[in-house]
């Protein structure tokens, strides 16, 4: 029963999402290098000596027990963490070789180059259409026609178009949670980022909706670099190309999924993967 409805959903998805329409940013998707990153909030040290290298056109999964600093790391990528009172960030974060924490870098530009998808979908208090148009306009798209074309385009890309085409002007808060999450993804894509950051983007979703998002990520990988935090190991096994394992604010192990997930070198990673702690 579930299997058939799942496949029918996926099938509809395939038909409704002509992804080749998606114009990728002209350059190759971005790479991200983190060097010697340290984060403190107040007196507390949250991230210590983080070194990671995130490859382009890959899905990088960040895994690790609760409270180890995954969300914090993700928020340092788009410089959202510094809006937190008391946060201190040191180290280098190279986006395509350029340090985004260098003085003189526009924070707004950095944020536009990343699309962050949070754990719980957070639609803006406006209509479905306006939610995406808001991002388009921030990105400099002007004119009703052009905005409408983009809205349709990104709704199709996230497979939401068929479900919402008749209610573009109803409040976004009326959509189901799964639909809201895809709307947030569409909204994030509409600012035409190079990297997608997803913080447990499927944890509030039912299995079918999370499969839809996973499937979407697998296809978006052709144009974007994707970094996602996940608590579901099976999800990491399904979609990760590259895996980062964190523990107590440090990166313990990092590498291709096949190595980290199937032949972990570090003892902590082995324990985590075998479920000795969570």
């Amino acid at each position: 029963m579930i299997a058939t409805s799942l496949s029918s959903v996926l099938l509809r998805e395939e038909v409704s999402a002509p992804l080749e329409l998606l114009h990728a940013p002209n350059m190759d998707a971005a790479t991200l290098k983190v060097r010697n990153l340290n984060v403190h909030i107040g007196e507390q040290s949250i991230l210590r000596d983080v070194h990671v290298h995130i490859p382009s056109h890959k899905i990088t999964c960040i895994i690790g027990p609760s409270g180890c600093g995954k969300s914090t790391l993700l928020k340092t990528f788009n410089r959202l963490l510094e809006t937190q009172p008391g946060a201190r960030i040191t180290g280098e974060l190279l986006l395509n070789g350029e340090n985004i924490y260098r003085e003189g870098v526009e924070v707004i530009d950095v944020r536009k180059r990343m699309g962050l998808l949070s754990q719980r979908p957070c639609p803006l208090p406006m209509s479905v259409y306006e939610n995406i148009a808001f991002g388009c306009r921030l990105h400099g798209t002007r004119g009703r026609r052009k905005v409408m074309r983009k809205v349709v385009h990104y709704l199709q890309a996230t497979g939401l178009w068929d479900e919402v085409r008749d209610r573009l002007h109803t409040p976004a808060s009326r959509l189901s949670i799964g639909q809201q999450q895809r709307l947030c993804l569409a909204r994030g894509l509409a600012v035409e980022p190079e990297i997608i950051l997803a913080d447990e983007a499927t944890s509030a979703l039912d299995p079918i909706s999370s499969r839809i998002i996973e499937d979407l990520f697998l296809r978006l990988r052709q144009q974007y670099t994707i970094i996602m935090v996940t608590h579901t190991l099976s999800q990491a096994v399904r979609i990760a190309d590259h895996v980062i394992f964190m523990y107590l604010g440090r990166v313990v192990e990092e590498g291709p999924a096949s190595e980290v997930l199937h032949h972990p070198k570090h003892k902590l990673t082995q324990e985590y993967l075998s479920g000795s702690f969570s």
């Binding site: 788009n78 959202l80 809006t83 707004i108 530009d109 944020r111 536009k112 990343m114 699309g115 962050l116 949070s118 719980r120 957070c122 803006l124 208090p125 406006m126 808001f134 991002g135 921030l138 990105h139 947030c184 909204r187 994030g188 600012v191």
Partner: peptide, 21 residues
């Protein structure tokens, strides 16, 4: 809500653009 503030900022909105939200 803090989450909505973060969602808006993540899109690259300035504080002034956030006023609308």
């Amino acid at each position: 809500p803090k989450e909505m503030k973060e969602a808006t900022l993540s899109l690259g909105a300035t504080k002034f653009e956030m006023v609308r939200v």
